[in-house]
Design a protein around this nucleic acid. Structure first.
Lengths: 276, 276
DNA sequence: TATTCCGATAGTGAC
DNA sequence: GTCACTATCGGAATGAG
């Protein structure tokens, strides 16, 4: 994944703005849309993390810019706390796709497996990810609840003036949110994905985009710390996961290596999923 | 190769017209250009050669139409004799690319190796191919001699009114013509390729298009009959030939599997070759 | 397992 | 080794005053 943040969005007026610790003005949909388009950060623009991993191109270090200079990316950064920065993925692979970045240099270049052996760090990240998921769910609700059958009763009750305490529950978007990491990230800096499960995005262009989120290559944050013999530690296992036959996240249909067919199917599933 | 004939051309006024045995009117460049565009024959349009080889698609039998009904393809058929039909390849892989088809049903579905074990048949085909090559060379001369340095002296002498008997020799296009067959043709009916060596054609789109003419997969008619132990009889050898690294037909430069690079190089070589 | 561009490779359908 | 179309698969560059 690109793991950079850009693109216009409408995360506004929720807890993210309330908790932000930057000097940026209060955010709302209007200021979001009016804000100048920022470019993705140039990796190693400063002096930090040069050749952090030796993996080759400088692009692998691009996320550090959001960590060190969140104020430079007002359109992408949704929330800054003493421990983390929450951003929108520059190339979202689902309707909602956020990244949670720890700010501590002692952790942010570690592999997630090792980093999450530190239970205090893991606990902190789980708490921050839970907040991020609430932000994500609120935005997903804003985008989809009008299409949602399970929100329909609540919508009608709201329109009818039913008191809040008596409103029927709407669709539980929060429970659908997925939270976790890639087994072998290609971006240097530790990042937790928070995303809706739909994989409905024109940024899903390659088979790895799909399988990195829909096989055991994706490791839920709840699964850490991994047992010593967890097969997800195996590089061979994870390389094989990326090459697996595609399986629809929603209905389980298998598509072999027919990526184009999978994409067409995801369109259909998205429409059905929206309406649930 | 497609081995069908189509496309406008200017083979006219030479021996092909003189020897034609059809009822078509005399052909010249003007009537060629004015003639209605004919479509490639529909394979098995008649009742002949149905499932001739069992290889699958009917398209493999398309050449029989030219053999049985040459009069239906006035734009493609250059010459008809009692023994052969000469046509322009529908998808020429070089500046000049003709196909010579034997008319005898006792031979025309044979593999070239077996067919050319019949020395009388081989001798006939060599004679007919020699005539075809003269037609091809005449057309190539018509197209290229104005660009040719070795024809320049002759061109100037012609312009100066030098008698024909005293003209200096022009470029020997005939000696450059290539005559032979594919080791494993994909069209059912025996066909001899007569073509200029340049491989300069937008129909050269796939690596097999190039290597089928520029490796031992291409067997010169002069090499028949093949010795019993000739390696060109080996299927494994010929499959490997199609996958060989590309080698420039003119300068010998090797291009690995870089087909696009080869194509760009062929453009340059064509310009140099034209000027020789 | 960043994206993007280019290009090589593979499967199919053609009436 | 027919073509033409679609798609899959594979490597290389990627910034920039």
């Amino acid at each position: 994944m690109a793991e950079n943040a850009e693109d216009a969005g409408d995360f506004a007026g929720d807890e993210s703005a309330q908790e932000k610790q930057t000097t940026a003005p209060p955010r709302n949909a209007f200021t979001e849309l009016m804000a100048p388009k920022t470019k993705p950060p140039k990796p190693d623009a400063g002096k930090s993390s040069r050749s952090a991993t030796g993996k080759g191109g400088k692009w692998t270090g691009a996320l550090v810019e959001y960590i060190e200079h969140p104020e430079r990316f007002p359109r992408e950064v949704l929330r800054v706390t003493p421990n983390t920065v929450l951003i929108k993925d520059l190339y979202p692979k689902a309707t909602i796709h956020l990244l949670l970045l720890p700010r501590d240099p002692a952790h942010y270049l570690m592999n997630p497996r090792e980093a999450f052996d530190d239970v205090a760090f893991l606990s902190m990240m789980r708490n921050e990810a839970a907040s991020a998921a609430r932000i994500a769910a609120a935005e997903l609700s804003r985008q989809l609840s009008l299409f949602s059958a399970s929100s329909h009763a609540r919508n009608e009750a709201v329109d009818a003036g039913v008191p809040a305490a008596e409103l029927p529950p709407g669709r539980d978007f929060l429970s659908e949110m997925r939270i976790g990491v890639h087994a072998h990230p290609s971006m240097d800096h530790l990042h937790v994905h928070i995303f809706s499960p739909d994989m409905h995005s024109d940024k899903v262009k390659h088979y790895k985009h799909y399988n990195s989120f829909n096989t055991p290559f994706f490791i839920p944050l709840d699964d850490f710390p991994l047992a010593a013999d967890d097969e997800r530690r195996s590089t061979a296992f994870q390389n094989a996961n990326l090459k697996r036959d595609f399986v629809c996240w929603r209905c389980g249909k298998v598509f072999g290596n027919k990526f184009a067919e999978l994409k067409r199917h995801l369109e259909i599933e998205f429409e059905l999923w929206k309406k649930t």
